[in-house]
Amino acid sequence: MPSQPLLPALLSTHLNLPPDGALDLVSGTLGASPNWLLLRFIAAALRGREDNANVSASRTGVIAQVRIVLVSWLQGAAFWKDTGRRLGIKFQNITIIDALDTGLGLTHDPNDADAISVVENRILGALDPSSTNSQASAQTETPMTAVLILDGLDFLLAATSIPVQSLHDLISSLRAHPNVNNVIITACADGPLMQNQTTPLEIAHASFVMGLAHQARMVMSVRELDTGSARDVSGVLRVTKGGGWEEGGEAVEEREVLYFVGNDGGVRVFERGG
């Protein structure tokens, strides 16, 4: 177990469970992976669930049971379980769809236009409360909402002929689904993909990511240090409001902080100069 606290104090408000229907965009680059941030989101949601369980024990009211569904295109299920174990995150309570190993959405038939509905049905199947284990079915009285995490959804753009708009439609219908509380999506924001696009893939990628940023409540961007690599800084995290942030809604504190991922998986988040 790493010595650093699992949830960095500077990010505690950002990792709270967002309101229903919210979309958060987490972007990374080749040199700065946002996996550590995703693990913190998962840990925060799990902690929230434990808090809720304590509350429901004392109160008889109906408390929403939060589930976590992780769909990962860029990492196998084994990777998430391993890193989670090192940090003390109990991945047995999390539904993982291993899209990397099963090749979810990847079809070699260019005429098969239904790749996107295969993805949607697979995710909706995992969201269905009745599909989960006995622990959940014992509490069928409580409404089940899920934190849905789509890791590397932009990979489908590069690997298949699925158009950008279909992916946006998929995300919108998942956000509007009654079993989903909020959606967190990670995507790449590397320079060649976002700046001065020329090829169809670059245009599609920029269009996808910026379209998400316009819908998102919060945008968290991880990037490498502008001044080059350093021994005690892994990268920069910038938190901003997205285009979908509602005036008068839950506050999103805009800030830019540095972070350092240690060998043990622990993360230290600190202000510049701190």
């Binding site: 972007s27 680059t29 490498e224 502008d226």
Partner: peptide, 12 residues
Amino acid sequence: LAESREGVLVGI
């Protein structure tokens, strides 16, 4: 985006 920094989507 105009900052032309890799990984930056929204300005502060």
